[in-house]
Design a protein around this nucleic acid. Sequence first.
RNA 1: GGGUUCUUAGCUCAGUUGGUUAGAGCGUCUGCUUGACGUGCAGAAGGUCGAAAGUUCGAAUCUUUCAGAACCCACCA
Length: 884
Amino acid sequence: MQPKNPADIPKAYNPRDAEDKWYKYWEEHKLYHSEVDSSKTPYTIVIPPPNITGILHIGHILNNTLQDIYIRYKRMKGFNACWVPGIDHASIATESKVVALLKEKGISKSEITREEFLKHCYEWKEKYGGIIFQQLRKLGVSCDWQRERFTMDDHYYKKVIEAFVQLYERGFIYRGYRMVNWDPASKSAISDEEVFYKEVKGKLWYFKYPVKDSKEFVIVATTRPETMLGDTGVAVNPEDERYKHLIGKKIILPIVGREVPLFTDEYVDKEFGTGAVKVTPAHDVNDYEMGSRHKLEFINIFNEDATTNKNVPEEFRNLDRYEARKKVVARFEELGLLYKVEDYTHKVGYSQRGNVPIEPYLSEQWFMKMEELSKPALGAVLDEKIKFHPEHWIKTYEHWMTNIRDWCISRQLWWGHRIPVWYNKNSNEIYCGLNPPKDIDNWRQDEDVLDTWASSWLWAQDVFTNERDQNYYYPTDLLVTAPDIIFFWVARMIIAGMYFKKKIPFKDVYFTSTVRDTQGRRMSKSLGNSPDPLDLIEEYGADALRFAIIYIAPLGQDVIFSSEKCEIGRNFANKIWNAGRFLLMNLAYRLPVRQAGAQSIPLNPSLKEKYIDFTDRWIISRFQSTLKELNSAFDKFEVNNASKIVYSYVWNDFCDWYVELCKQRLYSADEEVKSAVLTRAISLYEEMLKLVHPFMPFITEEIWQLLYERKNGESISTTLFPEFNEKLIDKNAEEEILFVQEVVTAIRNIRGEMNLPPSKQINVFLKTDKVTEERARYIKSLVRINELKVDIDMNKPKASASAVVKGCDIYIPLEGLIDLDVERGRIKKELTRLSSSLDAVKKKLSNEGFVTKAPPEVLEREKNKMNDWEKTIEKLNQILVDLE
RNA sequence: GGGUUCUUAGCUCAGUUGGUUAGAGCGUCUGCUUGACGUGCAGAAGGUCGAAAGUUCGAAUCUUUCAGAACCCACCA
């Protein structure tokens, strides 16, 4: 890299110049490619694979920034960092998109063969599957692109099938005719987890069912009138006196004319509705249970698309379920059997993908027995072999795992991993295996594919395609994911890891926050409240976006995001940029001779030790404390806190104080001092950049490359993170600076409140023996004053403003400038504040209980406080008297 | 119905095992063309920590009750 002429460094950081350039550089030099290296400890993350239908949204930004921060941090800590990217075929989501696309072209899925359809799917994948990774590159993610995987890669496909075969052979997978959640849109079963419940304003219809051989009616209430066409019974509670005389009698089902029994079941709630329930065993989960208990007939009245089938009276056939509903209600009305209709709000299960109400539906499906499989997986989390962050998700996980039900893993779709089961055409024989049976002509393969999650549950283990890699990188270290897929994915990956590998799949799981808009609503496409991350990157820069979202995203809580929040990051980037710019502008050897003015200073590391003072020791000490806090925050997965630690060090310590303190010496006459100060400042700045780098990779790389001559292929991202060194913590220097800061702030405060602009020359007198000449020089340069006089024996000059800091009296003579009323007001205000504090501490110290029970150091501290304040109050009172 | 989380400055949030005068960012007000930065600098205002009771020498922090918000799970026809 050619060093840049500092005169050319723009006043504001321009992300567009830096970002694409450095990403290309990193990728070209394969800086983030990892190979097995037994001399290094691996640190592995597998990306939650985005759907091939997915495009980048704000949630991805949070999730991937977090992963990148950890992978960059660990890489710099000397680990063999490996972040495996990849993509999920997303069976049902992709299939429904492809079906829709084909429909636009006038092609119906039912008209084409399975092979043709899959061809369209692969075309889709080629076209759209890579987009999200191009977008993620904009964010600066340091993935190992040589390891990019896809859940339908040959290797991965085989592993998914192997897992099925193994579980089948060991009896964990079975086929059964069961009631499942049926999605009429995709005409497939879905798992319980893919159903979400929406509150719907509906009606409750009350129907009169005639009792056979009687003039009585039994009134039943229902939210789904059309299902009455499949009713095969009416149930009441055995304790219900109202119906006791009718038990055992038959009901004549209106419209249909079927005779169905009236029976009793504990399930029925006497209090709800009329206390009588129509029972449709084939179309309701609870009715299914009752139907089984009482051996009722199961009549399926729907086709796969939830239209009515041949099992209903002819005039009701081939109707959409809502059409059928209207017609049934109308008929009841005609028959005079509609008792009443009430408004009723209830929850209806919807399919996550199709967004249509699901239908409880009886069909032949494949299931996985979960109870036994889930036990080791629950143990791994309860024993903290796998740690959740935040921890409270353990309870949610435990609840699900202990109430786990069998998993419906078959889907009536084509896009995905086809179930490796063949049925003999000539017998009842079933074959399950990795390879098709040899006499394939005699066999017919199961048409179904596996639930997407029954493939991605192997992600953590099978993205590694050979033994050597797997043994080295697995178990992975960290999984960063959204809590809404804790059951879908996290739990099942743990189950798979514990079962197939006998090892946990990852050590830590970080559950990200939900990103919401300023009104607290979830970011969503349909609401249009989700800013496009690419626009944000364009406007503010990737670093700004990364930093901002981390800065506002506390562990375990929702994030309230809006575009303007990126200003935090942009301003921070600019601050870092300008601190670097300032240092570079002082650097001589980069400047052409004609521009090398009085401020140009050569670097000379050998002088650093010779010229070191308390300000240097202070910033070095602060850097070390920052480093310690930062490491600890990372260890605890408090990334948001980590960002604040870095932010405050850079802005408050380094820029606001250290750079300002350095100016005094940088503008001095001594060339050696200047050289020493700049050399140190630049080296501290470089170390600081490393702390920032995991959060803001682009800007830190850009400036790092400008600081010194760098070789081609060198990068800040592959340098070592600073090591914490306890010995460099310097409490004395910190106390000295604190004193200087307080004096400076007190003087500035007086200036502000007395309305004295910096252009107005003032003098400051300090009555103290605590201010050495060295300190005085710094104080003077920081408050821009004319003369600073220090003397323990001085008298307060007349007509001056005053303050007291740690026993040091500060006087600012303001003959002719001072408004004595304002000054008295200031002092009185300070006195009031201090007196109330003093009263509180005195009260504490006169409390017998406190004095005897409080720990000695607390007692000591309170006593010191009291003494300090008493002295200060005394001095301020004297000052007040002098002002009269 | 069961569970989880939250309630601290106008807004968004920190606040470790109870112990300095409860902090930060944004916003607000005042001043500033200070040889890095106005995407900046300096200063200031602003909070009875959701309510009540309790434990304690001491509570934003622990306990209980109550009020409110969000989310997850189950689910009544």
